[in-house]
Structures are given as C-alpha cells and as structure tokens.
Nucleic acid binder design. Sequence first.
DNA 1: TAGTTGGGTTTTTTT
DNA 2: AACCCAACTA
Length: 757
Amino acid sequence: MSIYDTLNEQQKKGVFTTDGPVLLLAGAGSGKTRVVVHRIAYLIEEMGVNPFNILAITFTNKAAGEMRSRVDKLIGFGSEQIWVSTFHSMCVKILRRFADKIGYDTNFVIYDTDDSKAIVKEIIKKLNIDTRYIKEKAIRGAISHAKDELIGVEQFEKDAAYDMNERKIAAAYREYQTTLKKNNAMDFDDLIYNTVKLFKEHPQVLLNYQERFLYIHVDEYQDTNTAQFELVRLLADKNKNLCVVGDDDQSIYKFRGANIRNILDFEKTYPNATVIKLEENYRSTQNILDAANAVIHNNVRRKDKSLWTRKDSGNQVHFRQFETGKEEAEFIVSDIKSKSRKGIIGYSGCAVLYRTNAQARLIEEACIMSGVPYQVVGGVNFYSRKEIKDLMAYLKTIDNGKDDLAVKRIINIPKRGIGATTILRAQEAADAENISFYDALKKARSIPSLAKSADKIERFTDLIEYFRHRLEEYTLVDLMDEIISKTGYVEELKNDGDDTALDRIGNIDELITKINTFTDENEEATLSDFLAEVALVTDLDETEDDVEKLMLMTLHAAKGLEFPHVYIAGMEDGIFPGMMSIVADERDELEEERRLCYVGMTRAMVDLTLCCAKCRMQRGELQYNAVSRFVKEIPMELLDNKPQVRRTRDFDDYGDDSGFASSFKPKAIARAKQTERMPVMAKEVKALNQISGLAKGSDMNLGELDYTVGDRVHHIKFGDGTVTKIDREPRDYKVTVDFDTAGTRIMYAIFSKLKKI
DNA sequence: TAGTTGGGTTTTTTT
DNA sequence: AACCCAACTA
C-alpha cells in the first residue's frame, strides 16, 4: 500500500501528471494542499527528482510553513532542500544576491505600508499636490497598481501625458522611486517588480534559476497579479513544468492587484495544459455546501463547477437576526459558550468571521464579558506598533544609515530637542550635497544652517556610532537591551504612565523574545537578515492553533483555514457586501464580495451560523441595514430561519442599553441631529439623549470604588489579583493590580469593572 | 520646540 | 469613533 492510495482519481491525476503545465482547479476543501504535497513526494521518490530542483510558492508565510511541515512529514530525507517560499521572500532571496545588477545595494531595506505612506506624504508636500483633488491614498494605489501591472515610471509618464491628474501622479511615482532608491529601499511591490526586471535584463541570471527550478508549484494561483504571473512564467519558461493550484471562486484579492484572468486564461497561455478539477469536498456537510454553491452560482464570471460531498446533509444553516450589533455579538459568544459547556465543541473548534476588522471589537467585548478565551487574528500588525517601529528604526539606522525614514523617525525619540525645523534643514543640506540624511547629520558642525543644533545632533550620531561598534561584538539581543537602556525608552514609557504603557512594554519584551528565537534558529544571521525577515511577517502568520481559544478574524484572514463551527457576523447589505461594492457601477466588485462570502461559508465543517443586526454603530453613527443579499440567495429550505422582511424601524427596546454609555459624547449627538434625514430620527435622537444621560451618570460616579489598595479583586479576563495602587484622574481612577497569573496591569476603574472579593 | 485642542476626514479586505 | 493635521499656546 502506497501513500498515493488514499487519493481519489482526480487527485491522483494531479499527482502523477508531472510534466508540462497543469492547472488544478481545486474547490474549497477538496484537498489541494494534499495534492501538491503528494506530488512533490512523488517527484522525489518515484521520479528521482532532486529536491533541490523543486520550488513551491505560496502567498503567506503561514501557508508556506504549513506546506513545509506537511512535506517534511511525508518525505523523510532531503525535504529541507525543497524551496518552499512566499513570492515575496523568494524575491528577497534572489535580490539579495543580484540586486546590484539593477542598481540597488544587495543590503536594501524593505519598506512597509507605513513607510511608503510617509514617503508619499513628503512627496505631496514637495510637489505641491493638492490633496483635495488627488488623495494620498489614490497616489499610493496608483503606484502600487502600476508596479503590479509591471508599468514602470517611463511607461506611466507616457500613458499619463494627456491628463492633468495622471501627470501629477506620474511625477509622484517618479519621485517616489527616486526616494526609495536613494534610501536603498524597496517596497513590497518593488520586490516582485524588480525581480522580473532583473530576469528580463539579465538572461543569464534567469537561466540560472530556470535550471535550478525544474518543477514549479504555485498555490492560490487565483490571487496572483500580473507581475507575479510574469515572474512565474519566466521561471517556468524553459521547462514548462508548472503546476498551478487555485479556485477562481476564491479569488478575493483584486484590491491588491490579483488578476483573475491569470487563472481563467491559463489554458490560453498554455494550450497544452492539463486541466484537472477537484470537486469532491472533504470538509463540509451537504447543507453547507449547497448553501455556498447557491450563493456562488450568482456570479457570472467563473468556471462552472459544483462541490459535492459524501457527508450527510447535516444541520441546516442557522440564520439569526438581532436588533443591535451588541446583541448579535452577545448571542454568538453565548452560543459558543454553551456549546463548549455541553461538550459539543471546544472553543478552538469555533471561529467568528467578519468583513472588517472594526467589527472585532464588539465580539471581543462580548468574549471578555462572558469570560470566553479568544484570539484576534490579524488586526494591527505587531511590527507596525509604534514602540516596535521605533526600536526597529534604531536597528535599521544602526544597520544601514541610508534609510532616511528610519533615522528621521528616531532622531527625536526620546526627545532630544531636535524638531521639525532642524530636520528640514538637515534634509536640505543632504539634498544639496547629494548625501544621505544621516551623513548630513554627521557633518552638522560644518553646515552653517545646522550649527545651532550641532551639539544635539552630535549626541545622537555619537550614540548611533557607539551602537555600530557594539554590533561587532554583541549579539542582537544584547544590542537591543543596550538600545533600550541607553535611550531610556522603556523608562520613559513607565514614567508617562499612559494606560497603554504596560502593553507596550509587553510588546517590547515580545520583540526581544522574537529576536532571541530568530538568532537561535539562524546562527549566522546578520542584523540585515533579521530586518528583512521581519519586514515580510504579518500577524496572520503567528496564530497558535492548538490552544483552546475562540478564533476571531476577517473573512480574508480565514482563507485556507477550516473550523467545525463557523459564525459569520454582520450579514448586512452595506457591511457584507460592503457599501463600496454595492454602489460601484461594475459588477466585478459585488462578485468579489460574493466570492468572499463563499470562502467564509466553506470554512465550516459541521455547523454554520449567519448573523446580522438591524441597526449598529458605524463611523460614530447609527446605521440601519437590510439583511445581506447573500443570505437571500440561499434557498429557504437550507436555512433554519427565514430572513424577515424589513420591519419599520422601532427602538422601544433599545433605550436601556448601558453598554454604549461611556462611548457617547455630546458631539456625536449633535452630529446625529445634524444629519437628521427622516421622521424616524426624532425617536432616534430621543434614544440617544437617554443614553447620553447615562454617560453623564457614569462620570459622576467618581469617588465610589468599593475596593482600595491591598484589597483582592477579580477581573473578568485577568482573574484574581491584589490592588497595589490607585491614582485619581479627572475622569476616572487608574488602578494598578498585581494579578496572580496575568502579571501587573494598569487599568481604568470604569472600564475594568473590578469586583472586590 | 512641545504639547494641546479643535476641526476635518474617513473606511473594506493584506503581502 | 478613530485618526490626522493645522493652528495655537506655553
């Protein structure tokens, strides 16, 4: 009995068709990763291919890690030689070797979204662009899109010749690339773009990789953009042993440049391609599949296929409608809690999915209130938190003074009395002499305009130079420790007693742990290596999956995962599908939302619950939404509750909702009054006033804590602890508690709801 | 120069 | 509600 016997016929075909182009159209849950992994095993063990000659590309680090470990398990020997990598990290590896051929240093830094934002802002000022007509986001979007489509600056300028705004954007694009090059930096899009450029301009480099990668696999092929497509095409051009796996119904990254044509037209690009459809689903019950199929069938632009399963029909899909978003969240969490209590399913077997990250808050609050352990996947990236970015900027500056952006970030952190004026002057001097910002700082004393602040500047550059010398003998962790102590970063955090200070310090500890792990795993690694690694890491990559926690994430983040019980919150027109896609004149956008819905539904293995609210807070205003059209696309008999026809608005049971009390401000109410648009508003304003009364009430409560220093208290999330300090603040008490298990936390009395025990 | 306040703006989704 | 920016004050 061989490892291939467990595969179905179609899967086998995918595994055994090793030569030539192969398109594996793999529906959700049809075992596509399994096919790729077995295929790799087959190549090595049956075809005698050297693992060294195999490449597997994924989109996320997590997917790469998953594939790596599954390959390791299936293939005993030599599996570490296989190149399993994301597009981005593959390109970094290639560019670290050859970037000098296209005019970069090989130790280039990688700019994240925040960095490019900052650059674009500078450019807007420099080029005097009026942001009333051209938004910063539009510029960034245009630049990014251009690179995704392999449109360089020159081409962009040509195309833009006849349009005022486009010409401005073209100028910004040019300036942006110049700035990045000057800083020896590449953004995410550059990584792909430049690798393609490298391959096109240097055929011998390309050939080198073509001869190495004899068998190429691309996962989630439907998410490739034009540049990635071209990259793959070039790599596979010599041998054409290209196996792409994807599902056009799960293409949900158009906004990031993904070109669905890549998968729809694969057969046009490779006329002799073998096309294999995997339609047997091993994940979900028939009811869930039928519902998902019914939704996706409303899309026009797709390859027709229908998933089926050998499983029973299972439960109906649950549908629940609530008055408010808060009730929705409370229901979801209490439902999960009761399932867990009854032993139906553990917390880690459940996931709550939503369209936008902002929706996570309500669910989170409900979890805290009822003591359900949870983990939010994604959200704010660890590495984009202020304190982490600050310390990383120190590392970047020490590593490579060419990154002006990093230097400017920390030059006055902690405060050194170097303000905007000085920075501007130094930049002018740098521009005039055509040197980097940091080099200009080092020459401050000989630059007249900087003479006044030369002392302060020198103290900063001396510090950096000191760290640079230390780099030779120190480990990365020691260096980090010294940066923290010499700059007094943590000290300062502690002193200004911000209520987020402890979280921030915790983050810094985590950063140190991460550095430690990295240096343990990569003994030879340099500081540059660490910085590159970090630049490509997202929070999505770091989910601990074996812990008993309820998972909260966006629908996008859920792709590729599965859970026994899935809840989708906010099934409302305007939220999901989002307003933008409803208003858009092209059908495309709505189809993408529908695919997203399909992705979400097909995450569920045994139980799927769709929820919505009639009314919820959005952008500081109450909004009334109709039930999502996607729910209505599901045949009635598959649902346990019918979507109601929309009732007249009615708020009678809404007034006592004290949960909103602390978040309402008079300003919001004034605005709500201003935007009055319908007769119903009168009632709404009444409800709001009622709530605002409660808000005032809670402010007056100051002075009535039922515990004091030394008392034992209970917190719903952190458990029991001892109060060590209470500070009076204008609006509230700030309470410091030493928790038995959760460490020391500083929190506001009203929010923390501590109970004396 | 630094910190605060007020006003205006904004929204998907992420490598 | 959250964020960013500009203007004002200390």
